[in-house]
Design a protein around this nucleic acid. Structure first.
Lengths: 230, 230
DNA sequence: GTGGAGATGATTGTTGACAATCCTGTGAGC
DNA sequence: GCTCACAGGATTGTCAACAATCATCTCCAC
C-alpha cells in the first residue's frame, strides 16, 4: 500500500517484475516497518545481501528513496534514514492538511451512492471500535478511511504528494495513535468528514478534513513537550 | 532559481562542485528552457556529449528528473520529456493552489515590517507594468512576488513541493502569461494578497492566494478550448 | 502486393573492477 | 596524559566494457 504509487506508473504496459523497482520497494517497506531506525546508516554492501540485488540497483533505490524524503544521502558518506525533527513533522502535516482538504472537497463532488455507503460503514465500525476500546482496530480503520477518500477523489497529483508525505513521518504517526484520548477527539471529526462527503458538500468536507488534521498537528506539538520521538 | 531546492540540501557543509548534481541541474534548466520539447526522446549517449558527463552521471540525472516529474523513463525505452495533459495541468495547479494558500497564510503570520515594504514595492511596480502594457515585466514581477511570499513564509516542505510542481508545467504557464486580459484580472488579486500579508491577516491571505490561483485554473481550462498547448 | 519471420543496428540494463574519500585506531612527540 | 599525524580498512564514487532488449529494415512466402 505504501509502494504502489510509483509501481503502477511503470506497469502501464510493462508487466515487468522490474529488478530495480523491487529492491526499492522492499527497502522502503523495511524502513517504514521500522527495521532501520532514523539516523541508522545504510551501507550499500549490506543492502546488496539484504535485498539480493547488485550495488547498481541498490544505489538506484537509495536515490529514489532520497527523493521521497525517506533517507538522506551525503556525498562520500552514504545514506542514512532521515531523522525528521518535530518542527519538520509539523510542517509536513500542515501540507498534508491542505492537500487532504483538497482531496476531501473533490471526493464530495465525485462520490457515488455506493461509495457513500462504504464510507458510512467505516464510520460505524470506527464508532464501535472506539466504544470497545479497540484502538489498534480504530487506527487501521483510520488508514482505510483516508485511503477510501483519496480513492473517491481520484486526484493523482494530490494522491502522490500525500503518500510521499505520509511516508516521511510514519514513526511519528505511530506514536501519535498511542496518545491517550486521541480516539475520543478524532472520532467525531471523522464522522463529520464522512457526513460532508456523503452530502456532496465540498466546502464542509474540506473544512472538516482540515479541522481533523489540524488537531493532529496540535497533538504533535503536545507530544513535543513530552519529549518527542526518539 | 529552479535548481536550488536540492542543491542547498547537500551543500549544508560540503562545498563540493558535485559532479553528478551539475549534470542534473544543467539538464533541468535545458528542459525548463524549452530546449527539449515534450515527448522528445532523451538519448543517454547524446546527453553525455551535451552535458560533458559520463553515462553513469547522466543516468543518475535522468532518474532524479524523473522523480521530479519532469521526464518519464520507460524500461528499455529510455527517457523522454513528460507531456502533461491539460487535465494534469489543472490537477497540479489545484494542489499548488492549496499549498500556496498555506504559504500565504504563514507569510502573513511571519512577515516583518521590512518585508512588508518590499511586498508593497513589488505591488507598485506591478501596477505600473500593467498600466504601461509591459507584460513581460509584469510576468517577471509575478514570479518575484510568489518567490518573496515563499521566502517570508519559510516553510521548507511546502516550498519544495511548490517548486517541484511549478517545474512540471513551465510550458503551460508560459502560454498562460500570453493570454490577453490576464494581467487586468490578476493584478487586483495580487494586490489583495499583498495587502492581507502586510496586515498580518492569515485567513485573508490564504483566501486571496487561493482566489488568485483559482482564476489561473479557470484560464487553463479556457486555454483547453482554444486547442491547448502542443 | 501484403504479411510475417528474421537479421541488423541502436539504445538501454548490468556488472565488476578500480579510484577517491572518509572513518578508526595506533603510535610518536610534547 | 594529551594532541596530532599517519597508516590501514572500510565505504562510496566513477568508469568502461559487456549483455539484454528494442526498433527498423529486408527478404521470402503466399
Amino acid at each position: 500500500m505504501a509502494s504502489d504509487h510509483d509501481t503502477d506508473r511503470r506497469s502501464a504496459r510493462a508487466s515487468a517484475p522490474t529488478t530495480a523497482t523491487q529492491a526499492r520497494d522492499t527497502l522502503r517497506d523495511a524502513i517504514l516497518r521500522g527495521e532501520y531506525l532514523p539516523g541508522e546508516r545504510l551501507v550499500e554492501a549490506q543492502l546488496c545481501e539484504r535485498l539480493d540485488a547488485s550495488r547498481f540497483n541498490v544505489r538506484a533505490a537509495l536515490q529514489d528513496l532520497a527523493s521521497e524524503g525517506l533517507i538522506e544521502v551525503q556525498r562520500n558518506r552514504g545514506a542514512q534514514v532521515r531523522k525528521v525533527s518535530m518542527a519538520e513533522a509539523v510542517e509536513i502535516t500542515e501540507v498534508r492538511m491542505v492537500v487532504e482538504g483538497l482531496i476531501a472537497a473533490r471526493a464530495a463532488e465525485r462520490v457515488t451512492t455506493e461509495q457513500a455507503t462504504e464510507l458510512d460503514e467505516i464510520g460505524v465500525l470506527m464508532r464501535r471500535a472506539v466504544e470497545a476500546g479497540e484502538y489498534r482496530r480504530y487506527s487501521d480503520l483510520n488508514v482505510r478511511l483516508h485511503a477510501l477518500v483519496r480513492e473517491i477523489a481520484q486526484h493523482q497529483t494530490a494522491d502522490r504528494i500525500v503518500e510521499t508525505l505520509r511516508g516521511q513521518l510514519v514513526r511519528h504517526q505511530y506514536m501519535l495513535s498511542l496518545l491517550p484520548g486521541r480516539p475520543q477527539i478524532s472520532l467525531p471529526q471523522h464522522e463529520r468528514i464522512i457526513a460532508a462527503i456523503r452530502d456532496h458538500d465540498a466546502k464542509a468536507a474540506e473544512f472538516a478534513m482540515r479541522e481533523h488534521i489540524s488537531s493532529v498537528i496540535e497533538a504533535l506539538r503536545s507530544m513535543d513537550y513530552l519529549g518527542g520521538p526518539a
